[in-house]
Each structure stands twice: as C-alpha cells, then as structure tokens.
Nucleic acid binder design. Sequence first.
RNA 1: GGGCGGUUAGCUCAGCGGCAGAGCACUUCGUUUACACCGAAGGGGUCGCAGGUUCAAAUCCUGCACCGCCCACCA
Length: 784
Amino acid sequence: MNTTYDPSKESEIYKAWEDSGFFNPDRAPKKPRKAPPRSKPRKISSRGKQKVFSMVLPPPNVTGILHMGHAAMLAIQDILIRYHRMKGDKTLWIPGTDHAAIATQEKVEKEIYKKEGKSRHDLGREEFLRRVEQFAKESHDHIVRQTKRMGASLDWSREAFTLDEARTRAVREAFKRMYGAGLIYRGGRIVNWDPKLQTTVSDDEIEWKEEKASFYYFKYGPFEIGTARPETKFGDKYVVMHPKDGRYAKWKDGQKVELEWINGPITATIIKDGAVDPAFGTGVMTITPWHDATDFEIAERHKLDKEQIIDLRGKLLPIAGEFAGKKITEARPLVVEKLKAKGLLVKTDENYTHRIATSSRGGGTIEPQILTQWFVDVSKKFTLQKPLKGSGLKEIKGINPRNEISLKELMYMAVRSGQITILPKKFNKIYFYWTDNLRDWCISRQIWYGHRIPAWYHESKCIPRQGHEADVAKCKEVIVSDVKPKCEFCNAEFTQDPDTLDTWFSSGLWTFSTLGWPFGKAQGKPFDSAPFDKAQGGHGKPSKDFLMYHPTSVLETGYDILFFWVARMILMSGFLLGDIPFKTVYLHGMVRDAQGRKMSKSLGNIIDPLVMAEKYGADATRLSLIIGAAPGNDMKLSEDRVRGYRNFSTKLWNIARFIRMNEKPEFASLRSRYTAEDKKALVKALSIQKRVERSINTFRFHEGAELLYHYVWHELADKIIEREKKRLQGEHMAHAGTAHALLRELLRISITALHPFMPFVTEAIYQELYASEAKGDLLMIQNW
RNA sequence: GGGCGGUUAGCUCAGCGGCAGAGCACUUCGUUUACACCGAAGGGGUCGCAGGUUCAAAUCCUGCACCGCCCACCA
C-alpha cells in the first residue's frame, strides 16, 4: 500500500462494481452477506418480504456536461441507494437523460450558426434533427462517463431517454388519454411568445428583468392614460377604470366616447373592471388584449374585440398605419413624437422602472400573443382513474375515485393528504401556493426537437368519397393519433401538427415511463404499429418492474424544479395511474461558487466535478458537497473544501495501512480477550453507525458524514490508534494480537458506515484488508 | 405587492431550549510503528438589533434592520 490513496484507480473500482451486476436489483444478492461468499450469489426466485427502495435519477439535459449541482445530486442519491442496498433492500436506481427540447435545440442552433452561418430553416427539419441527435448522443455519452466517475451506482441495464422509443410510446399514450378526457385542448389563448426563438415558452420559463423606461401620459379623449408602451396602442378602443373609483363615477360601463388618437378619430368604449388599480397612474388605462395577459383577461370577461398589433417577428402590422412594418423598438419614439405633435402628450416620467419578461432560454424579450396552442386544462373536472385490482396501484388518499376532481386539486391533495411528503417542510407552502394559483399549462412548442404532437389536421378541401357526399360536414377536423389517420368520408389528407411538446410533458411521466408504462398492447411494440390503448382509462397488465418499484420511494432533486418537474409528475401519475409517483420528495439546494454566485459559463466560475475528481478523488468531491450543506439550503463550494476532504481520504487510507502493517497472524481468535475498554470502543463505534443510519433516514446527510469524519479522524486515528500502539509494540504477543483485532474491527465498522458517502476509498480498503478471493466480494454489498 | 429563508469565530457554515461548535485560516511546539494531505497545545464569539416567555434562549414569541430567493396581471 502506498502512503497516499490513489484516486486514479477509482475507475477500476467502478468497473468491478459494474461487472458484478449488483447495481441491478434482480442480480444483487437478496440479503447482503456477512461472511465472505463461498459460491456465486444466490438468485432471487421470489419477491418474498424483502423491502423495496426505488428512485429515478432526475435525467440531466443532454446539453453538454454535468456541473457541481449534478455532482451533489448524484452524491446524495448514491448515499441513499448504497445505504439501502447494504441494508438488504431490493434497491433500484434508474438512470437516464432528458432530451430537453428547447434547451438542446437552441444550443445546436447556436453552434451551427456560429460554424456555418446557417439557421435551422436553411438546413430543413430532417437534416437539422439529425444534427441535434448527433449532438445529443455525444452529450449523453459524456454525461454517462461523468456519472460513473462520481461513483453513482445506477442500474445501467434500465437506462432510459425521454425521447427514445419506449418513452415516445408513453408520451403519445398520455397525450391521447388526456385528450380523450378533455384535459388537453387546443385553443386561442394568450401565450408567451419568444420572437427570437420563434416559439412559445411556458410561464415558468420566463425571467423578469428590471428595465428603465420612460412612462408617458397621454390625453385619451376626456381621460389621461399612462403607458410605457405607446407603440402597442394603435388598436386600443377600450378605456378601463375601477368600478368604485369616484373620480370617474359619471362614466358608465359601456358608454361610448369619440376621441382623437394616433392615426385619427376613434370611438372608445368605457369598461369598468376591478383589475384596474386606482392608485396607479391616473387610474385609467386602455387595453391591448392581444399583447398583454391582464388585458386579455379583461377582454375575456367583458367579451371585447381583440386585435393583433405586432406580428410574430416583433414588427407592427398594417393596423399601425404609417408605422406598419417597423420594429416595436423603432416605432416607440416615433409614436411618441407623433402624439406630441398632435398635442396629446401630457408629460413624460423618465425615472420609471418596470419589469420586462425575457426568455430564460434565449434571453429574448417575450411578446405576449394570442395563438392557437395546445393546453392542459388544470381546472376541468374528471373522474379519477380507478386502480385495477391487483395492479399494485393505490388510491390517492382524500380523493374518492368516483368523485370528480381537477388536476389542480389532485396535485394539491396528493401532498396535503400526507401521502407525499416534501422535505424540507418549508417547500410545502410554496407548493400549495403554486397549485392554488395554477393556470392552464401551454404544452406546444414551435420547435423541431422533441415529441411531435400526435394530432392531425384535416386538409381544408373535402373531396367526398363515393356514397359519402352528404357526410362531408361530419369530417373530423382534428384527430389525435400516433399514425397518419384517414378520413372516414372523404379523400382529404391529414397533416400532422408541426409543433412539439414541452419537454416537461415527457419528463412528467418519468417515474413510470421508465418502469414499462404504457402496459398492455402498446408495450414492447414499435410505436408506429401500436395503436393507442383502446380501452380508454384501462391500465392493461402492469409490468413486473412497475409492480415492484412503483411508486418510487424517494424523489431527490433541486428545489428549482419543484414546479417544472415534481408537480408535473404528480399531475401525470395522478391522472394516468390514479397513483402517486413517489412517497418522499427531498429537495436539495443549489451549489454556488465561493462568492455565492450561480455557477455559469459566462462568469467563468464553474468548478468541473470531473476535474475535482481527477485531482482529489470522487470521494473527496462527494464529501465536500455533502458536509456543510443543510437540507434545501444553497451551499458555497471552493476548491479548498475539496482539498480538505482529500486529506481525509488519505487519513483513512493510512489508518488501513497502519493496521495492515501490524497484522498479527494469531489475531483471529482473540476477540474473547477484549478488555472492558476494547468493548467500550466497539460499542461506541456501533453507536456512531446507528447515528449515521438515523441521519440518512431523516435526510440529514451532512450530520452523518460529519460524525464519521470526526469519529475516524479524531477518535479512531488520534486516540485509539495512538493508545493501541503500546499494546502493539509490547512484548506480549497475545495483547498485540487483541489490539490488532480491535483496530481491524473498528475500521471495518467505519468503512462500512462510510461506504455510502465515500464508496471508492472504502471499497479499496475493503479489498486490501477484508475481501476474500471469491469473485464479487465487494464492500458495496456487505451488510450494513 | 405577497411569501419564504438567512444574519453564529478572520472565511465557509452546522447547531435550533441545558457549559457556544466544525472545516479552512492563524499562533507555538514536534524528524513518535501509518499519515506533513501529519501530530500536540493554543488564540479567536455581547450567536444582526430591541423587547418578551422561561429556573434556563443562539435556539421559542413580537417588533426592527440589512442580505438573498420565490411568487404576482400595476397598465
């Protein structure tokens, strides 16, 4: 043994684990062995009463490489997995990656533009997708290598991808069922349009940025209105005020007013609506329903006309008269100029800051637009799926399967009922608040990379087939299908919706699309030939994996995707299975740099976990991400910290080396000679192990890790070993043997308890000191 | 505007009713059956501020200040 632990061997250790097959719970020994095995591990013939522990890995985006946040996630989850595996539970951890639709597409688009100066439209859909897939594959391979390097004991035989065949079947089945239940609808609604990426984005993908702007007050007939966006005011013909605003009491709802506006005289209508804040500006505003969410809602309430002012490229439409074709940013000062010339500008407030919506993906300014999109209706009532007998599906507490419920209520109840526990607790309130205020989820995206929406549109020209001349009116306009449908009555073709689905639609299915769902006919067949499950609402025969591992035990992820992902998984499994996707949600904090900033490429403050692992070992990297990070709190990471834990690896290694150096051939039988002090030391070690166990069970990993760090360094090394040196070098060989036996046993307890935290060094030590010749004798599967 | 969290040693953070803790940094000493990526000894704190509850408060309650985050339709 060398004086320092050599982390470059970690890849070999990982390979030994992987080759053993024990990452796969079907191949892992049912009960970990206490004694070295004499023969090959027993195969499990029946489920028996073995406890099950299952998790899915939150699939990293195939947009590049893993960062420290991923490393922290892998470390925490691997602790849970290794602990449960050593406890003897049937333990499954499913790996996978996320196609991350918009994020990946954008990344590749940028790259192609940079290298070749071409846009995706220049390449065409097919060629562009080929490029994205190529990129995604390379990215995937890199991510898998990194994940293994961190020691994550995932069952690679079950690896999944949110855009592979099996998951595509799941997505289409889910879409079809939700459409069938009326929970997915297509409609004209106000959406967040990103003129830069030419796609809609969801509410959650918006980043608000403060911007300084001028705030103008204009004369609008007898009123004065304030606005920061005069260039949108061309179509404004409604003037809105609060119904209880005394200043405007003489104006009646619906009353008409003739007035002079940007491009000439118009007739405006008075509208009274509570959404207006009397204290803001003049308490009067005009509305632009096509380009503002609040205005849209007011218009909906009062059934007002809506007119489009700005096109999808961000340019003004003919309604703007002389300004048509101009970009909105160009038009703004010109419009102000014109209104001023007409004497309608009252005053300008230069010190006005407002928040503008930008896309968190492309950074472009969001321009709300009314567009025909696909939505998930979160408020529509439906009857909850009734779990089939013997299917392993459980009812969601507090919801009678025969009662009607909305997705919103379902998401709320699954957590409120206590069936799903969110840790740390503080996130419960945030979750409830979110579900309470949830609006319909826009799921269509105008991008190419992703799950194509399985909806087909009837071409407008109907050429009735013979004998069906009278049926043309019955032709279905939209058919949801995974294959190209044919019209019953005419020869018209169907064309598929060009849009793709929001990436979270597919990741929402992750906990069960990775376990063999959809069941029945669709399972295992290429999706082109597999019809959607006809028995709408039927479950089919559940897969073995599903029965065994669903709902998953724990969902561990960053708090930043509580809404994006966690909530959507609850929604999806609630509707499609009538079940919860997981029992406990544990949310970890973000990893930040030493100054507390987010790690990002532009700041150049990214600490690459792979570099850390090469330099200091994966174990040290893992420990640095665990210790000092309280549940749900952000943590600051610096290389110093990692270095500190590398020293601990070395310390542990040297303890092992010292014990090996003092091997006494006769140690084996000397247990009975333990003194009272020896026994006390053993009891202490075991009690530490118990406390570590408790820390893992309560998701307080930093406590367990710190406890072990302390015990090993300042108790085992500094006190016990120093003390035992006397006995070891004494004349009395038997006493020396006893001392050695004690140290050996204490170290074994220590590395066992430490294994989930630092799998590599502990395995290396186990192989040096404890393993038998038998193949597959690994610390990884020793009894905890 | 609403909500949540933070404020503890020089730095990074645990602790969340019972004698103020860890890691890093710092000071002094040390070529000991492993380890200098080490050991021994040590310095360093009105636990943000002001009240309150309690035998006892960093910990519970109230208010305030500053910092951070999340949510929201102020045109």
